[in-house]
């Protein structure tokens, strides 16, 4: 763990930074309003004690929300020149990237905490199956983390936060979209659905924990972060 000491220090600093600017509160509020609306919209019609509505839209909502959190992580440092501070401290690029990733992933996880209120609502109105709910939250953390890694990669490519946001959104949206367009493709291209974040998220959300789905999200995270490290090291 000693090797990653600096990553934890950077994570602490980034988390603190998110909460000293209004952006964290704005993103969280928008996220809660959006998920709350879609969750309660039909909740009382169907009279079903489940959270499907919430989890169904979560991957799409994350494609907007996660890039808003990650866009500044490297772009802002490049813009302001503080990248020079970060990269002349005795911190390896890996630790710098990892620290920022952990901060973003922790923020996304924190953002999910208030939604546990929906679980309480469901519990009060019936007796839900907890398998899908626990699976849904685990999947949400994994999916959010994977999107964070994509967002950090695009943030390291640009010094403009808006560009970082839009490219991150495009990347996440593509991952969400892939399994939906396989309908229009010849059937031998059906394997493309394995590339889809939504496909794997749905698997976990059913309450079935398959190692393939875990490996998928971990690969997205590891590959994106490794590329980010390369991008930063190459631009010296």
């Amino acid at each position: 763990m000693r090797k990653y000491r600096e990553a934890l220090i950077i994570m602490r600093k980034e988390l603190r930074g998110m909460f000293t600017t209004p952006i964290a509160y704005i993103v969280m509020t928008i996220f809660l309003i959006a998920t709350g609306f879609f969750f309660f919209k039909d909740f009382f019609y169907f009279n079903q004690a489940e959270m499907r509505n919430f989890f169904q839209l979560l991957p799409l909502i994350f494609t907007f929300v996660v890039p808003a959190v990650t866009m500044r992580l490297f772009a802002e440092e490049k813009q302001s020149g503080s990248m020079e501070i970060l990269l002349t401290l005795p911190v390896s690029t890996t630790n710098a990237v990892l620290g920022k990733f952990l901060a973003a992933a922790a923020f996304i996880s924190l953002m999910l905490v208030p939604t546990l209120f929906y679980v309480v609502t469901v519990e009060l109105s019936g007796s839900p199956y907890y398998g899908p709910i626990i699976g849904g939250y685990l999947g949400a953390v994994l999916l959010g983390s994977a999107y964070c890694a994509v967002g950090i990669l695009t943030s390291s490519l640009s010094r403009d936060q808006i560009v970082a946001f839009i490219t991150a959104w495009a990347g996440c949206f593509f991952l969400w979209l892939v399994d939906k367009i396989t309908l229009f493709l010849p059937s031998w291209l059906g394997f493309l659905e394995y590339l889809s974040s939504d496909f794997h998220f749905k698997n976990i959300e059913r309450g079935v924990l398959d190692s393939r789905d875990l490996i998928y999200f971990l690969s997205i995270i590891v590959i994106s972060l490794l590329v980010t490290v390369r991008v930063i090291d190459e631009r010296r």
Binding site: K13, G17, T20, T21, S80, G81, S82, E84, I85, T88
Partner: peptide, 12 residues
Amino acid sequence: YLPELAPIYGDM
């Protein structure tokens, strides 16, 4: 190291 113009984290 003190970089030129000391570009440091303004929000901190």
